[in-house]
Every structure is written in C-alpha cells, then in structure tokens.
Design a protein around this nucleic acid. Sequence first.
RNA 1: GGCCCCAUCGUCUAGAGGCCUAGGACACCACCCUCUCAAGGUGGAGACACGGGUUCGAAUCCCGUUGGGGCUGCCA
Length: 476
Amino acid sequence: MRDGVRETRGGGPRLRFAPSPTGYLHVGSARAALYNWLVARREGGRLVLRIEDTDAARGREEWVEGILDVLSWLGLDWDEGPYRQSTRTERYREVAEQLFRSGAAYYCDCTREAVDERAKAAGRPPGYDRWCRTRGLGPGPDRALRFAVPLEGETTVADRIRGEVTFSNAQLDDFALLRSNGAPLFLLCNVVDDADEAITDVVRGEDHLPNTPKYQLLWEAIGARPLPRFAHLPMLVNERRQKLSKRRDPVRVEDYRAEGYLPEAMCNYLALLGWGPENDQEVLELDELVAQFSLERVNHAPAFFDPVKLRHFNGVWIRRLDPATFRARCEPFLRAAPWPADAFDAAAFTRLAPAVQERVGTLSEVVGMVSFLFEEPLQMEEAAWAKLARAPETPAILVAARASYADVAWEAEPLHAATAAIADAAGLKLRQAQAPIRLAVTGRLVGPPLFDALEALGRARALERLDRAIERAATA
RNA sequence: GGCCCCAUCGUCUAGAGGCCUAGGACACCACCCUCUCAAGGUGGAGACACGGGUUCGAAUCCCGUUGGGGCUGCCA
C-alpha cells in the first residue's frame, strides 16, 4: 500500500464514504454516509473516509473541512482517513500505465468535436465510437487514455439491494481513464482506491449503478482482489420526483444545522428514507438503528425528502432533551439573537425554557418565543395590536391587569388567579382576557403560557409594558 | 433515442402466497384537554398503477402495458 493507505488485517467488512468536495454536504450524501456507517458498525467492519478531489478545479479546502465538520456533528465517525485522491496522482498514473502496457487501455487523440461530428454524420446517438482503439497510439500530449471495454459478453452486478443486474458489454463505451492532460478520472481513481484500501462493500447512490459494470471490468483488468459487494441506494427526490438539486432544493445539511435541527433528528429521519423498522417504533437513536438496520431491507424506490416530516421528528427529539441539555443546545442561537448581548438573562430564560421546549420544531424558533424577555423596546405585532386596540374591552382589561398585577404575588399561579378574576369581572372567558395582556406584554398573540411568561419577565417590566399599552390604546 | 432501475394511502413506510376487512408515521379533518400556541389523547378520511398469467389462494411470483426516475462527459 502506498501514500499512507494501509490495509487492516482480518475480519470484518470495509466500507467507505467518498464525497467529492464540490460544495457542502448534501442530504443525499449524508444518507449514504449514514447507511455506510450503520453497516460498518452493525457488521463489525471499518469505515474509510475518502475525499474524491481529483478535479482540481473543484476542490477547495474549506469544502473538505465543512464536510468533515458536518459528519462529526451528525455523530458519524470514521476509522480511517480522510484519504485524499489529490495526493495519489502518481499511483493512478502508474496503474493507468500498466493498463496501457497490458493492452487493456489505449490512447486516443479524438477531440470532443470530432467525436460528435462522426456520430452526427453516421446518425448515431452521441458517444465515443472507439475510433482510436486499433490505431496503436502511444502516450503523448493531447492524448487521453481509454479503457478497452470487451466487445462481447455481459457483466453482472450482484447488488445487495436489487439482486443481479446484467449489462451487455457492447452497450458500454470506452470510457476515459486519463484526461489528455494526464489527470486521472473518476472511475480509475475510484477503483484503484477501493482496491488499495481493500474495500469489501460499496454502498452508494443508485445514480452509480450504470457505472458499476465499468467499475467491475476495470477492477478485473487491474486484477487485484475479489470484487467488492455492491448496494445501490434509492435516490432522494423532491416533490417533483426528481433527484434533489443543489439549486432548487434545500439540501445542505449544514443549513439544517444552522436552523436548529438536531443531529439525532437528522439521522433518524434520514434512516427512514429508504428503510423502515419492522415494528412501529420510528423514533430511534443511532445505536438502535445499528441494532435494527439491514441493507437487505432497504427499499428500491426513490424517496421524497419531506422537510415537514423532518421538522416533526426534530420537535420530537427536542422534547426528548433534558432541560439543561435543551438550554445548552439553544445557547448558540440565543447568542446570535437580535438583542444586545448583555440583555440576555439566563435566569429568565431558564424559567421559561421548559414551556418553550415543548413548542418548537427547531432551535432557531426559540429566539422568537423568548425575545420579549430581552428586547427593549418590545417589538409589537402591529397588525394584531391594531385589531385588538379597537376592541371595546381592551382598555378596561389592561387597566385592571395593571392594578391587579401591582401587588399580586409574582408567580404563575397567583397571576393566573388574578387574571381569571379580571376576566370574570368583565364577563369574559380567561382566553379572551389574556389576549390583550399577552399582546401588551410579549408583543405577540401566541407564545409560551402567559403566566409563566409574566413570571419570567418580572413585575417591573410587565407593569411598564402594560402602562405603555394603556397609553397607546388611549391615543388610538 | 439507447441502456438500466423503480411502482402499497398526498408523503415516508410495514407487508417476503393464506395472519390483510392492508398496519404505523407525517400531513389533513373532527372532537377532547386547554390561559394563546403547541404538545398529548380519541376518532375519521385516505393506497396495493393497469392488464394478463401461475396458484385452491396473490399487495406478495412471472409476463406485458402505462407511468416515474437514473445514466448516457477527457464531472464525481
């Protein structure tokens, strides 16, 4: 083995996750990573992380860091790597050279234009026509190296999910191994690395299935070791049933992270896309997934990535957090919030946090639910205020609350009782009476339970806000 | 166009020939609970794409049709 790529001896399967650093981690890639991780853990194998950064034009160091960071955040660790293809160019060239010498590959100086023209002139569909296969070209500038696919016979892929898939070799084209500038291409690097890293199981997206016969033929030409087993996962699609697109669809895992999705929820939901447990228990943590997961039970059909259901799972996972953990996970979101840093009051937040925890689908929603505690002046929902201020009972309710709250014991229960009394006196339901008070004090019509909110806010600020609202109502 | 994959409620799935009057979850609707909103509880509507076989029996097996999707780069 070269370049620090080593082979572990003995035992279990070896899997790999091999993202290309072309952007941030895509949810589809995350699911592939998760499935690889689950299989490795479940079957007592090892997971290799490999960065497929052969295309220098694309790779960027920060992309790589971003991917590693998100994988770690998800809780998916790896046993080896990250290995980088960009450090192994010589190795790929060496294998390419062997393939040329053995006659398994040949040099080609056709330009893209020439290939297209020939196809058009002959009325064939576009694609390479093996023009140089018998020309006996040697290496040289502007010559790509192509693999000489057998003209006859069939190649069968044994897929753990789909069973056997057979391709006719004649249908495969003589794909390129090296670019005319000498740079190694995907299939070559992929196969060489899988061989050098002693990969035994390839678990990847279904979009790779048509590549697999080429992969196998190349593998055999290199002649290293037994072919890995394959498993091609169904695609993740959008509402239009198309492969998720980076442009149109929300696919960046780190965007979900930034919005306050929990890694537990993300893994749980992703696991359920293409696979389902045998019983009805769908909320599962990573180790439960490891215990139950099985590639053979993975579905064949594409799955819609449903952000709504993800959010539901996220809410479930948020509610499962113990109070201290919930507060800790909220911290980054509270720190980035729109109020001045010194306005944050940890005690007030702690008082209200349990009520908030039950009500949010993402951590970023916490900010809006507690902002009334920290922002000054209060942001008022003007549309709601305009409507409520016109209601005939509003001024009286506010005035009565102002008076009553001035000397009630400042805890949720007494506040509740006091407000109920006000409602009673006004001949209103508590639900009706609390609305103007809530709006005056929190600026919103919905939020955590009013009396908990009042308690957390404190008497002085609550009275102040009631005063201000009474004033506004009077001048309206 | 060619090659390949796929097909159970709107969505994600359970279902490996009789256990299916097709189960669960999200979303939806109603009711309950309730200081708003959520959460929770109860109930409801909602699917085996179609057509042929095979079989005593098919959502499950086979073939075809239709419909989706992927690949078809000197990208990965």
